[in-house]
Design a protein around this nucleic acid. Structure first.
Lengths: 253, 253
DNA sequence: GTCGTTCATTGGTGATATCATAAGATTAGT
DNA sequence: ACTAATCTTATGATATCACCAATGAACGAC
Protein backbone atom coordinates (compact mmCIF):
# COMPACT_ATOMS: atom_id res chain seq x y z
CA UNK A 1 0.00 0.00 0.00
CA UNK A 2 1.48 3.27 -1.10
CA UNK A 3 -0.79 5.52 0.93
CA UNK A 4 -0.64 5.96 4.63
CA UNK A 5 -3.57 5.23 6.84
CA UNK A 6 -5.36 8.56 6.38
CA UNK A 7 -8.51 7.02 5.04
CA UNK A 8 -10.61 10.11 5.52
CA UNK A 9 -9.32 12.25 2.65
CA UNK A 10 -10.99 10.63 -0.33
CA UNK A 11 -9.23 8.04 -2.34
CA UNK A 12 -9.38 9.79 -5.66
CA UNK A 13 -7.96 13.01 -4.23
CA UNK A 14 -5.11 11.10 -2.66
CA UNK A 15 -4.38 9.36 -5.93
CA UNK A 16 -4.38 12.65 -7.80
CA UNK A 17 -2.11 14.02 -5.12
CA UNK A 18 0.25 11.11 -5.34
CA UNK A 19 0.67 11.07 -9.09
CA UNK A 20 0.41 14.81 -9.60
CA UNK A 21 3.07 15.60 -7.10
CA UNK A 22 5.45 13.12 -8.63
CA UNK A 23 4.96 14.77 -12.00
CA UNK A 24 5.74 18.27 -10.75
CA UNK A 25 8.52 16.69 -8.77
CA UNK A 26 9.84 15.36 -12.08
CA UNK A 27 9.95 11.88 -10.64
CA UNK A 28 7.91 11.42 -13.79
CA UNK A 29 9.46 13.93 -16.20
CA UNK A 30 7.64 15.31 -19.26
CA UNK A 31 7.48 12.60 -21.87
CA UNK A 32 7.47 9.85 -19.27
CA UNK A 33 5.11 7.08 -20.24
CA UNK A 34 3.05 5.62 -17.47
CA UNK A 35 2.32 1.95 -17.33
CA UNK A 36 -1.25 1.14 -18.29
CA UNK A 37 -4.13 1.91 -15.99
CA UNK A 38 -4.38 -1.66 -14.84
CA UNK A 39 -0.79 -1.83 -13.68
CA UNK A 40 -1.08 1.63 -12.19
CA UNK A 41 -4.05 0.54 -10.16
CA UNK A 42 -2.01 -2.40 -8.93
CA UNK A 43 1.00 -0.23 -8.07
CA UNK A 44 -1.08 2.32 -6.20
CA UNK A 45 -3.32 -0.23 -4.58
CA UNK A 46 -6.53 1.36 -5.81
CA UNK A 47 -9.13 0.29 -8.30
CA UNK A 48 -8.80 1.03 -11.97
CA UNK A 49 -11.84 3.29 -11.83
CA UNK A 50 -10.14 5.52 -9.31
CA UNK A 51 -7.00 5.58 -11.43
CA UNK A 52 -9.15 6.53 -14.39
CA UNK A 53 -10.85 9.34 -12.51
CA UNK A 54 -7.55 10.60 -11.12
CA UNK A 55 -6.00 10.54 -14.58
CA UNK A 56 -9.00 12.46 -15.88
CA UNK A 57 -8.48 15.15 -13.24
CA UNK A 58 -4.78 15.29 -13.97
CA UNK A 59 -5.45 15.66 -17.65
CA UNK A 60 -7.79 18.52 -16.84
CA UNK A 61 -4.93 20.17 -15.02
CA UNK A 62 -2.84 19.80 -18.16
CA UNK A 63 -0.29 17.55 -16.53
CA UNK A 64 -0.81 14.50 -18.70
CA UNK A 65 -2.06 13.49 -22.10
CA UNK A 66 -3.52 10.09 -22.80
CA UNK A 67 -4.18 8.50 -26.14
CA UNK A 68 -5.28 4.98 -26.91
CA UNK A 69 -2.55 2.54 -27.65
CA UNK A 70 0.36 4.85 -26.87
CA UNK A 71 -0.84 5.18 -23.31
CA UNK A 72 -0.60 8.05 -20.88
CA UNK A 73 2.38 10.38 -20.98
CA UNK A 74 3.43 13.35 -18.89
CA UNK A 75 2.67 16.52 -20.84
CA UNK A 76 5.12 19.23 -21.67
CA UNK A 77 5.63 21.82 -18.96
CA UNK A 78 4.20 24.45 -21.26
CA UNK A 79 0.73 23.02 -21.02
CA UNK A 80 0.61 22.63 -17.24
CA UNK A 81 -2.08 24.75 -15.68
CA UNK A 82 0.00 26.72 -13.21
CA UNK A 83 -3.06 28.56 -11.97
CA UNK A 84 -4.66 25.38 -10.72
CA UNK A 85 -4.49 25.34 -6.94
CA UNK A 86 -3.13 21.83 -6.76
CA UNK A 87 -0.54 22.34 -9.45
CA UNK A 88 0.65 25.52 -7.84
CA UNK A 89 0.81 23.92 -4.43
CA UNK A 90 2.80 21.01 -5.77
CA UNK A 91 5.13 23.33 -7.63
CA UNK A 92 5.92 25.15 -4.46
CA UNK A 93 6.25 22.03 -2.37
CA UNK A 94 8.58 20.47 -4.90
CA UNK A 95 12.16 21.47 -5.14
CA UNK A 96 11.37 24.20 -7.65
CA UNK A 97 9.99 26.33 -4.82
CA UNK A 98 12.37 29.30 -5.08
CA UNK A 99 11.77 29.75 -8.78
CA UNK A 100 8.01 29.35 -8.55
CA UNK A 101 7.76 31.64 -5.57
CA UNK A 102 9.84 34.20 -7.40
CA UNK A 103 7.46 34.11 -10.31
CA UNK A 104 4.48 34.38 -8.01
CA UNK A 105 6.04 37.33 -6.25
CA UNK A 106 6.45 39.05 -9.57
CA UNK A 107 2.84 38.39 -10.44
CA UNK A 108 1.76 39.76 -7.09
CA UNK A 109 3.72 42.88 -7.84
CA UNK A 110 1.79 43.20 -11.06
CA UNK A 111 -1.67 42.52 -9.71
CA UNK A 112 -1.97 43.64 -6.15
CA UNK A 113 -1.05 47.30 -6.50
CA UNK A 114 -3.66 47.66 -9.19
CA UNK A 115 -6.15 45.77 -7.06
CA UNK A 116 -5.43 48.24 -4.28
CA UNK A 117 -5.95 51.07 -6.73
CA UNK A 118 -9.31 49.69 -7.78
CA UNK A 119 -10.23 49.11 -4.17
CA UNK A 120 -9.45 52.74 -3.38
CA UNK A 121 -11.62 53.79 -6.27
CA UNK A 122 -14.61 51.62 -5.56
CA UNK A 123 -14.59 50.52 -1.96
CA UNK A 124 -17.91 50.43 -0.21
CA UNK A 125 -18.09 51.58 3.38
CA UNK A 126 -18.51 47.99 4.51
CA UNK A 127 -15.40 46.96 2.59
CA UNK A 128 -13.43 49.75 4.23
CA UNK A 129 -14.62 48.64 7.64
CA UNK A 130 -13.75 45.06 6.83
CA UNK A 131 -10.28 46.13 5.78
CA UNK A 132 -9.83 48.07 8.96
CA UNK A 133 -10.96 45.06 10.97
CA UNK A 134 -8.49 42.80 9.23
CA UNK A 135 -5.71 45.26 9.86
CA UNK A 136 -6.58 45.39 13.51
CA UNK A 137 -6.52 41.61 13.62
CA UNK A 138 -3.04 41.67 12.14
CA UNK A 139 -1.82 44.26 14.57
CA UNK A 140 -3.25 42.27 17.45
CA UNK A 141 -1.58 39.01 16.45
CA UNK A 142 1.82 40.38 15.57
CA UNK A 143 3.46 38.08 18.07
CA UNK A 144 1.71 34.88 16.97
CA UNK A 145 3.21 33.97 13.62
CA UNK A 146 0.50 31.62 12.46
CA UNK A 147 -2.37 33.87 13.36
CA UNK A 148 -0.49 36.77 11.82
CA UNK A 149 -0.13 34.98 8.50
CA UNK A 150 -3.80 34.11 8.64
CA UNK A 151 -4.74 37.72 9.21
CA UNK A 152 -2.30 38.79 6.51
CA UNK A 153 -3.99 36.54 3.94
CA UNK A 154 -7.39 37.80 5.05
CA UNK A 155 -6.20 41.38 4.66
CA UNK A 156 -5.07 40.88 1.08
CA UNK A 157 -8.26 39.02 0.38
CA UNK A 158 -10.25 41.95 1.70
CA UNK A 159 -8.40 44.28 -0.64
CA UNK A 160 -9.34 42.12 -3.58
CA UNK A 161 -12.94 41.94 -2.50
CA UNK A 162 -13.05 45.69 -2.11
CA UNK A 163 -11.94 45.95 -5.73
CA UNK A 164 -15.25 44.35 -6.66
CA UNK A 165 -14.08 42.26 -9.59
CA UNK A 166 -14.71 38.52 -9.22
CA UNK A 167 -12.16 37.52 -11.84
CA UNK A 168 -9.52 39.52 -10.06
CA UNK A 169 -10.67 38.05 -6.78
CA UNK A 170 -10.14 34.61 -8.20
CA UNK A 171 -6.53 35.51 -8.82
CA UNK A 172 -6.34 36.39 -5.17
CA UNK A 173 -7.20 32.79 -4.52
CA UNK A 174 -4.23 31.73 -6.62
CA UNK A 175 -1.99 34.06 -4.69
CA UNK A 176 -3.41 32.77 -1.44
CA UNK A 177 -2.44 29.23 -2.34
CA UNK A 178 1.04 30.37 -3.20
CA UNK A 179 1.45 32.19 0.07
CA UNK A 180 0.05 29.28 2.04
CA UNK A 181 2.72 27.17 0.43
CA UNK A 182 5.43 29.56 1.52
CA UNK A 183 3.99 29.93 4.97
CA UNK A 184 6.35 27.56 6.69
CA UNK A 185 9.21 29.54 5.25
CA UNK A 186 7.81 32.97 5.89
CA UNK A 187 7.21 32.49 9.55
CA UNK A 188 10.88 31.91 10.11
CA UNK A 189 11.92 35.44 9.29
CA UNK A 190 12.74 37.18 12.55
CA UNK A 191 10.89 40.43 13.00
CA UNK A 192 9.16 40.01 9.64
CA UNK A 193 5.71 41.02 10.82
CA UNK A 194 6.97 44.10 12.58
CA UNK A 195 8.47 45.44 9.38
CA UNK A 196 5.40 44.96 7.22
CA UNK A 197 2.65 45.96 9.62
CA UNK A 198 3.24 49.63 8.98
CA UNK A 199 2.97 49.09 5.24
CA UNK A 200 -0.34 47.35 5.71
CA UNK A 201 -1.53 50.33 7.70
CA UNK A 202 -0.59 52.63 4.83
CA UNK A 203 -2.50 50.50 2.34
CA UNK A 204 -5.59 50.41 4.54
CA UNK A 205 -5.47 54.16 5.11
CA UNK A 206 -5.05 54.94 1.44
CA UNK A 207 -8.00 52.79 0.45
CA UNK A 208 -10.03 54.34 3.24
CA UNK A 209 -9.25 57.81 1.92
CA UNK A 210 -9.84 56.75 -1.65
CA UNK A 211 -6.30 57.77 -2.55
CA UNK A 212 -5.67 55.53 -5.55
CA UNK A 213 -2.08 56.47 -6.26
CA UNK A 214 -1.02 56.12 -2.65
CA UNK A 215 -2.83 52.78 -2.34
CA UNK A 216 -0.95 51.38 -5.32
CA UNK A 217 2.35 52.81 -4.11
CA UNK A 218 1.93 51.47 -0.59
CA UNK A 219 0.96 48.03 -1.84
CA UNK A 220 3.95 47.93 -4.14
CA UNK A 221 6.32 48.73 -1.34
CA UNK A 222 4.62 46.25 0.95
CA UNK A 223 5.08 43.43 -1.52
CA UNK A 224 8.62 44.44 -2.31
CA UNK A 225 9.52 44.31 1.34
CA UNK A 226 7.93 40.96 2.08
CA UNK A 227 9.21 39.49 -1.18
CA UNK A 228 12.76 40.52 -0.45
CA UNK A 229 12.41 38.85 2.93
CA UNK A 230 11.10 35.71 1.34
CA UNK A 231 13.69 35.49 -1.38
CA UNK A 232 16.50 36.19 1.02
CA UNK A 233 15.35 33.14 2.95
CA UNK A 234 14.91 30.96 -0.10
CA UNK A 235 18.21 31.82 -1.71
CA UNK A 236 20.62 31.97 1.18
CA UNK A 237 23.85 33.75 0.22
CA UNK A 238 26.15 30.82 0.88
CA UNK A 239 23.75 28.08 -0.22
CA UNK A 240 23.16 26.38 3.12
CA UNK A 241 20.97 23.28 2.99
CA UNK A 242 17.29 23.84 2.33
CA UNK A 243 14.85 24.26 5.19
CA UNK A 244 14.35 20.99 7.06
CA UNK A 245 12.48 18.29 5.20
CA UNK A 246 11.19 20.87 2.76
CA UNK A 247 9.41 18.93 0.05
CA UNK A 248 6.51 17.60 2.05
CA UNK A 249 3.46 17.25 -0.19
CA UNK A 250 1.18 17.22 2.86
CA UNK A 251 -2.24 17.67 1.19
CA UNK A 252 -4.13 19.86 3.58
CA UNK A 253 -2.45 20.40 6.90
CA UNK B 1 -31.35 10.94 -25.11
CA UNK B 2 -30.42 14.48 -24.14
CA UNK B 3 -27.28 14.71 -26.22
CA UNK B 4 -27.21 14.99 -29.95
CA UNK B 5 -25.52 12.44 -32.10
CA UNK B 6 -22.03 13.86 -31.74
CA UNK B 7 -20.60 10.67 -30.37
CA UNK B 8 -17.01 11.63 -30.96
CA UNK B 9 -16.51 14.18 -28.19
CA UNK B 10 -16.25 11.96 -25.15
CA UNK B 11 -19.21 11.23 -23.00
CA UNK B 12 -17.85 12.48 -19.74
CA UNK B 13 -16.80 15.81 -21.19
CA UNK B 14 -20.21 16.29 -22.70
CA UNK B 15 -21.85 15.52 -19.38
CA UNK B 16 -19.62 18.01 -17.59
CA UNK B 17 -20.48 20.53 -20.27
CA UNK B 18 -24.17 19.91 -19.96
CA UNK B 19 -24.42 20.20 -16.22
CA UNK B 20 -21.74 22.83 -15.79
CA UNK B 21 -23.28 25.19 -18.28
CA UNK B 22 -26.69 24.90 -16.67
CA UNK B 23 -25.15 25.85 -13.35
CA UNK B 24 -23.46 28.99 -14.67
CA UNK B 25 -26.63 29.62 -16.58
CA UNK B 26 -28.42 29.51 -13.23
CA UNK B 27 -30.83 26.98 -14.60
CA UNK B 28 -29.54 25.31 -11.47
CA UNK B 29 -29.01 28.25 -9.10
CA UNK B 30 -26.68 28.11 -6.09
CA UNK B 31 -28.29 25.98 -3.42
CA UNK B 32 -30.16 23.88 -5.96
CA UNK B 33 -30.17 20.26 -4.94
CA UNK B 34 -29.68 17.76 -7.70
CA UNK B 35 -31.56 14.52 -7.74
CA UNK B 36 -29.39 11.61 -6.81
CA UNK B 37 -26.77 10.26 -9.18
CA UNK B 38 -28.98 7.37 -10.20
CA UNK B 39 -31.83 9.59 -11.32
CA UNK B 40 -29.38 11.99 -12.93
CA UNK B 41 -27.91 9.18 -14.95
CA UNK B 42 -31.41 8.29 -16.09
CA UNK B 43 -32.24 11.89 -16.98
CA UNK B 44 -29.03 12.37 -18.92
CA UNK B 45 -29.08 8.94 -20.48
CA UNK B 46 -25.59 8.02 -19.32
CA UNK B 47 -24.33 5.56 -16.78
CA UNK B 48 -24.00 6.46 -13.13
CA UNK B 49 -20.23 6.12 -13.39
CA UNK B 50 -20.08 8.88 -15.96
CA UNK B 51 -22.33 11.06 -13.82
CA UNK B 52 -20.10 10.33 -10.88
CA UNK B 53 -16.97 11.31 -12.78
CA UNK B 54 -18.57 14.41 -14.24
CA UNK B 55 -19.74 15.47 -10.80
CA UNK B 56 -16.20 14.95 -9.54
CA UNK B 57 -14.82 17.25 -12.23
CA UNK B 58 -17.48 19.82 -11.48
CA UNK B 59 -16.67 19.70 -7.82
CA UNK B 60 -13.03 20.31 -8.70
CA UNK B 61 -14.12 23.43 -10.53
CA UNK B 62 -15.86 24.56 -7.36
CA UNK B 63 -19.30 24.54 -8.92
CA UNK B 64 -20.87 21.92 -6.70
CA UNK B 65 -20.52 20.31 -3.32
CA UNK B 66 -21.63 16.80 -2.61
CA UNK B 67 -22.02 15.08 0.70
CA UNK B 68 -23.35 11.64 1.44
CA UNK B 69 -27.03 11.45 2.23
CA UNK B 70 -27.84 15.07 1.53
CA UNK B 71 -26.77 14.74 -2.07
CA UNK B 72 -25.19 17.20 -4.46
CA UNK B 73 -25.90 20.91 -4.33
CA UNK B 74 -24.80 23.84 -6.45
CA UNK B 75 -22.12 25.74 -4.56
CA UNK B 76 -22.16 29.42 -3.75
CA UNK B 77 -20.90 31.67 -6.53
CA UNK B 78 -18.05 32.74 -4.29
CA UNK B 79 -16.38 29.38 -4.53
CA UNK B 80 -16.61 28.98 -8.28
CA UNK B 81 -13.22 28.79 -9.90
CA UNK B 82 -13.55 31.63 -12.40
CA UNK B 83 -10.05 30.99 -13.70
CA UNK B 84 -10.94 27.53 -14.89
CA UNK B 85 -11.16 27.52 -18.68
CA UNK B 86 -14.50 25.78 -18.78
CA UNK B 87 -16.07 27.92 -16.10
CA UNK B 88 -14.88 31.07 -17.79
CA UNK B 89 -16.12 29.92 -21.15
CA UNK B 90 -19.52 29.06 -19.73
CA UNK B 91 -19.69 32.38 -17.92
CA UNK B 92 -19.14 34.23 -21.15
CA UNK B 93 -21.51 32.06 -23.15
CA UNK B 94 -24.24 32.48 -20.55
CA UNK B 95 -26.31 35.59 -20.32
CA UNK B 96 -23.84 37.18 -17.92
CA UNK B 97 -21.45 37.79 -20.81
CA UNK B 98 -21.26 41.59 -20.66
CA UNK B 99 -20.46 41.61 -16.97
CA UNK B 100 -17.90 38.85 -17.18
CA UNK B 101 -16.25 40.35 -20.20
CA UNK B 102 -16.11 43.70 -18.46
CA UNK B 103 -14.34 42.11 -15.54
CA UNK B 104 -11.93 40.32 -17.82
CA UNK B 105 -11.19 43.53 -19.67
CA UNK B 106 -10.36 45.19 -16.39
CA UNK B 107 -8.04 42.35 -15.49
CA UNK B 108 -6.35 42.61 -18.86
CA UNK B 109 -5.79 46.28 -18.20
CA UNK B 110 -4.09 45.34 -14.98
CA UNK B 111 -1.93 42.53 -16.27
CA UNK B 112 -1.01 43.09 -19.87
CA UNK B 113 0.70 46.47 -19.62
CA UNK B 114 2.93 45.10 -16.91
CA UNK B 115 3.57 41.99 -18.97
CA UNK B 116 4.60 44.26 -21.82
CA UNK B 117 6.87 46.13 -19.45
CA UNK B 118 8.53 42.91 -18.32
CA UNK B 119 8.81 41.78 -21.91
CA UNK B 120 10.59 45.02 -22.79
CA UNK B 121 12.95 44.47 -19.90
CA UNK B 122 13.80 40.85 -20.52
CA UNK B 123 13.00 39.95 -24.10
CA UNK B 124 15.44 37.64 -25.81
CA UNK B 125 16.30 38.28 -29.45
CA UNK B 126 14.24 35.28 -30.47
CA UNK B 127 11.25 36.59 -28.55
CA UNK B 128 11.58 39.94 -30.28
CA UNK B 129 11.72 38.23 -33.66
CA UNK B 130 8.71 36.12 -32.77
CA UNK B 131 6.80 39.21 -31.76
CA UNK B 132 7.69 40.91 -34.99
CA UNK B 133 6.56 37.84 -36.93
CA UNK B 134 3.22 37.79 -35.14
CA UNK B 135 2.72 41.46 -35.85
CA UNK B 136 3.44 40.89 -39.52
CA UNK B 137 0.91 38.06 -39.53
CA UNK B 138 -1.67 40.43 -38.06
CA UNK B 139 -0.92 43.12 -40.58
CA UNK B 140 -1.18 40.60 -43.39
CA UNK B 141 -4.56 39.27 -42.33
CA UNK B 142 -6.22 42.56 -41.49
CA UNK B 143 -9.00 41.84 -43.95
CA UNK B 144 -9.79 38.31 -42.76
CA UNK B 145 -11.49 38.70 -39.39
CA UNK B 146 -10.99 35.18 -38.15
CA UNK B 147 -7.36 34.98 -39.09
CA UNK B 148 -6.83 38.42 -37.65
CA UNK B 149 -8.24 37.39 -34.29
CA UNK B 150 -6.05 34.32 -34.37
CA UNK B 151 -2.97 36.41 -35.03
CA UNK B 152 -4.07 38.88 -32.38
CA UNK B 153 -4.23 36.15 -29.75
CA UNK B 154 -0.86 34.86 -30.86
CA UNK B 155 0.60 38.35 -30.57
CA UNK B 156 -0.53 38.80 -27.00
CA UNK B 157 0.67 35.32 -26.21
CA UNK B 158 4.07 36.20 -27.59
CA UNK B 159 4.24 39.24 -25.34
CA UNK B 160 3.55 37.07 -22.32
CA UNK B 161 6.15 34.56 -23.37
CA UNK B 162 8.70 37.30 -23.85
CA UNK B 163 8.06 38.32 -20.26
CA UNK B 164 9.52 34.98 -19.24
CA UNK B 165 7.31 34.25 -16.28
CA UNK B 166 5.34 30.99 -16.54
CA UNK B 167 2.77 31.97 -13.94
CA UNK B 168 2.07 35.17 -15.80
CA UNK B 169 1.96 33.22 -19.05
CA UNK B 170 -0.70 31.01 -17.54
CA UNK B 171 -2.85 34.05 -17.00
CA UNK B 172 -2.46 34.72 -20.68
CA UNK B 173 -4.18 31.41 -21.22
CA UNK B 174 -7.10 32.61 -19.10
CA UNK B 175 -7.29 35.78 -21.11
CA UNK B 176 -7.09 33.80 -24.31
CA UNK B 177 -10.14 31.78 -23.32
CA UNK B 178 -12.01 34.94 -22.50
CA UNK B 179 -11.17 36.52 -25.82
CA UNK B 180 -12.04 33.37 -27.70
CA UNK B 181 -15.41 33.54 -26.03
CA UNK B 182 -15.94 37.10 -27.15
CA UNK B 183 -14.69 36.39 -30.63
CA UNK B 184 -18.08 36.13 -32.25
CA UNK B 185 -18.91 39.54 -30.85
CA UNK B 186 -15.59 41.15 -31.62
CA UNK B 187 -15.58 40.32 -35.28
CA UNK B 188 -18.76 42.32 -35.73
CA UNK B 189 -17.12 45.65 -35.07
CA UNK B 190 -16.64 47.40 -38.39
CA UNK B 191 -13.09 48.57 -38.97
CA UNK B 192 -12.00 47.22 -35.58
CA UNK B 193 -8.75 45.70 -36.81
CA UNK B 194 -7.69 48.82 -38.65
CA UNK B 195 -7.92 50.87 -35.48
CA UNK B 196 -5.85 48.55 -33.30
CA UNK B 197 -3.17 47.45 -35.72
CA UNK B 198 -1.17 50.63 -35.17
CA UNK B 199 -1.28 50.14 -31.41
CA UNK B 200 0.08 46.64 -31.84
CA UNK B 201 2.91 48.08 -33.87
CA UNK B 202 3.73 50.50 -31.08
CA UNK B 203 3.82 47.72 -28.53
CA UNK B 204 6.07 45.57 -30.67
CA UNK B 205 8.41 48.47 -31.35
CA UNK B 206 8.65 49.42 -27.71
CA UNK B 207 9.48 45.89 -26.65
CA UNK B 208 12.00 45.65 -29.44
CA UNK B 209 13.69 48.84 -28.21
CA UNK B 210 13.51 47.74 -24.61
CA UNK B 211 11.49 50.83 -23.79
CA UNK B 212 9.58 49.64 -20.72
CA UNK B 213 7.49 52.71 -20.07
CA UNK B 214 6.42 53.05 -23.68
CA UNK B 215 5.60 49.34 -23.90
CA UNK B 216 3.31 49.59 -20.90
CA UNK B 217 1.72 52.77 -22.15
CA UNK B 218 1.14 51.42 -25.64
CA UNK B 219 -0.38 48.21 -24.32
CA UNK B 220 -2.68 50.15 -22.03
CA UNK B 221 -3.98 52.24 -24.87
CA UNK B 222 -4.34 49.19 -27.06
CA UNK B 223 -6.50 47.42 -24.53
CA UNK B 224 -8.50 50.54 -23.78
CA UNK B 225 -9.32 50.93 -27.43
CA UNK B 226 -10.33 47.35 -28.07
CA UNK B 227 -12.20 47.17 -24.77
CA UNK B 228 -14.21 50.25 -25.52
CA UNK B 229 -15.11 48.70 -28.85
CA UNK B 230 -16.17 45.51 -27.18
CA UNK B 231 -18.20 47.14 -24.44
CA UNK B 232 -19.88 49.48 -26.84
CA UNK B 233 -21.11 46.41 -28.65
CA UNK B 234 -22.16 44.59 -25.52
CA UNK B 235 -23.89 47.47 -23.84
CA UNK B 236 -25.75 49.28 -26.57
CA UNK B 237 -26.35 52.95 -25.62
CA UNK B 238 -30.15 52.78 -25.32
CA UNK B 239 -30.30 49.47 -23.53
CA UNK B 240 -32.06 47.58 -26.26
CA UNK B 241 -32.54 43.85 -25.67
CA UNK B 242 -29.34 41.86 -25.38
CA UNK B 243 -27.60 40.85 -28.56
CA UNK B 244 -29.78 38.38 -30.42
CA UNK B 245 -30.18 34.96 -28.84
CA UNK B 246 -26.83 35.41 -27.17
CA UNK B 247 -26.76 32.56 -24.72
CA UNK B 248 -25.91 29.76 -27.09
CA UNK B 249 -24.08 27.10 -25.11
CA UNK B 250 -22.57 25.56 -28.22
CA UNK B 251 -19.60 23.80 -26.57
CA UNK B 252 -16.89 24.05 -29.20
CA UNK B 253 -18.06 25.38 -32.47
C1' DG C 1 -34.53 15.32 25.20
C1' DT C 2 -31.08 12.23 24.09
C1' DC C 3 -29.49 8.24 21.84
C1' DG C 4 -29.52 4.41 18.66
C1' DT C 5 -31.35 2.51 14.38
C1' DT C 6 -32.47 2.85 9.81
C1' DC C 7 -31.82 3.94 5.24
C1' DA C 8 -30.98 6.87 1.31
C1' DT C 9 -26.99 8.54 -1.07
C1' DT C 10 -22.31 9.13 -2.16
C1' DG C 11 -17.76 6.76 -2.40
C1' DG C 12 -15.11 2.79 -4.04
C1' DT C 13 -14.31 -1.85 -6.47
C1' DG C 14 -14.14 -5.38 -10.07
C1' DA C 15 -15.66 -7.45 -14.12
C1' DT C 16 -16.97 -6.88 -18.79
C1' DA C 17 -17.97 -4.90 -23.18
C1' DT C 18 -16.83 -1.58 -26.88
C1' DC C 19 -14.13 1.41 -29.60
C1' DA C 20 -10.05 3.63 -31.47
C1' DT C 21 -5.49 3.23 -32.98
C1' DA C 22 -0.71 2.01 -33.55
C1' DA C 23 2.00 -1.67 -34.85
C1' DG C 24 2.69 -5.81 -37.11
C1' DA C 25 1.51 -9.01 -40.90
C1' DT C 26 0.25 -9.76 -45.49
C1' DT C 27 0.00 -9.04 -50.11
C1' DA C 28 0.69 -6.64 -54.40
C1' DG C 29 3.58 -3.98 -57.35
C1' DT C 30 8.06 -2.83 -59.06
C1' DA D 1 13.78 -9.53 -53.50
C1' DC D 2 12.47 -5.17 -51.73
C1' DT D 3 9.22 -1.61 -50.91
C1' DA D 4 4.69 0.17 -50.23
C1' DA D 5 -0.07 -0.05 -49.46
C1' DT D 6 -3.61 -2.33 -47.02
C1' DC D 7 -5.56 -5.54 -43.66
C1' DT D 8 -5.49 -7.61 -39.24
C1' DT D 9 -4.49 -7.79 -34.60
C1' DA D 10 -3.57 -6.53 -30.15
C1' DT D 11 -3.41 -3.07 -26.74
C1' DG D 12 -5.18 0.34 -24.02
C1' DA D 13 -8.66 3.94 -23.30
C1' DT D 14 -13.78 4.58 -22.78
C1' DA D 15 -18.16 3.24 -21.03
C1' DT D 16 -21.51 0.38 -18.41
C1' DC D 17 -23.14 -2.56 -14.83
C1' DA D 18 -23.70 -4.67 -10.40
C1' DC D 19 -22.07 -4.64 -5.76
C1' DC D 20 -20.30 -3.38 -1.39
C1' DA D 21 -18.73 0.10 2.11
C1' DA D 22 -18.96 4.36 4.52
C1' DT D 23 -21.58 8.15 6.03
C1' DG D 24 -24.63 11.13 8.01
C1' DA D 25 -29.44 12.76 8.30
C1' DA D 26 -33.97 11.66 9.80
C1' DC D 27 -36.82 9.24 12.65
C1' DG D 28 -38.39 6.61 16.29
C1' DA D 29 -37.54 4.40 20.94
C1' DC D 30 -36.52 5.07 25.43
Amino acid sequence: MVFDSRTGTGLRQRTVESIGYRIIDSTYPPGHRFSNQEDLSAELGVSRTVVREALGLLRDKGLIESRPKSGTVVADRRSWNLLDSDVLRWSIAARSAPTTLGHVAEVRLVIEPQAARLAARRRSDEAAAELRAQYDAMAASVSDFNRYIEADLAFHDAVFRAAANPVLAQMAETIRVALEGSRQVTVQVPGGPATTIEHHARVARAIQHRDEAEAARAMTELIEVSTSHLLRLLRPPDGDGRSGGGADPDPDG
